[in-house]
Amino acid sequence: MQPDSTGWKAVIQITASEVLNGMRDAGRVELRDSIIRFLRALAIEVGTTVTSGHPPPGLPMTIRGVTWYSVHVFNDPVFFNYSIYPEERQIRICDLIWVEAL
């Protein structure tokens, strides 16, 4: 049994999930796994910052009443947006952009 330190989760929407699957299909399984670990850790970090009253990581932008935070994954060609749902103790990743050089 693993301890659940904050109970916060990262929920990956279908469009972001398709990008993660594309990484796997392109043979970039290590990158995909790294991004998934990053998103799990981010959920815990966001939960901690929200409960302590601090601003969450990322550049905030409000679209149709929902505040999204834009984040670049340091040292990886990945950008994404997430929103926060404290009542459900989760963040939702909607847009995930993977920039792969050809």
Rank of each mutant, 00 (worst) to 15 (best):
A16D: 01
H72W: 13
V19A: 07
P56D: 06
I12T: 04
T6Q: 09
V71P: 03
M61F: 12
T48N: 13
A41E: 13
S52L: 10
L20T: 02
T48C: 05
G47P: 03
H54G: 08
V99Q: 08
T48V: 13
R28L: 15
R92Q: 11
L96C: 02
I14E: 15
E88K: 11
D33L: 07
A10N: 05
E30F: 02
R89T: 11
P57W: 01
N75V: 07
V71F: 09
P55A: 09
T48Y: 08
V11I: 13
E88L: 08
D33M: 02
S17G: 15
F79H: 06
G65R: 04
F74C: 08
R24C: 11
G65N: 03
V99G: 05
P86M: 03
Q13C: 05
R92E: 15
V11F: 09
V50M: 06
M1E: 11
H54Q: 15
G27W: 05
S70Q: 12
G22E: 07
A101V: 10
V11Q: 10
T15A: 07
T62R: 06
C94M: 12
D4W: 02
A43Q: 08
L42K: 00
E30K: 05
L102S: 11
T6P: 07
V66E: 12
E45W: 04
I12S: 00
E87W: 05
V11D: 12
T67A: 02
L59Q: 14
W8V: 05
F80I: 00
Y69T: 05
V50S: 08
V73G: 01
P77L: 05
V46M: 09
L96T: 02
P86Y: 03
F80Y: 15
G47Y: 06
G53F: 00
F38Q: 11
D33F: 01
V19H: 01
G65P: 06
R64N: 14
K9Y: 07
E87P: 06
V78E: 02
E30S: 13
D25M: 10
V11T: 09
E18Q: 13
R40D: 12
A10D: 04
N21R: 12
P56Y: 04
T62F: 01
G22T: 00
E18K: 10
F80H: 03
I91V: 06
F74G: 13
P56C: 12
D4F: 08
L102T: 09
P57Y: 04
F80S: 03
R28Q: 08
Q2W: 07
S70G: 11
F74R: 14
R92C: 09
H54Y: 10
P86G: 02
H54P: 04
V78A: 03
W98P: 01
I91T: 01
W68R: 13
E18P: 03
R64Y: 11
T48D: 14
Q90F: 01
T51S: 15
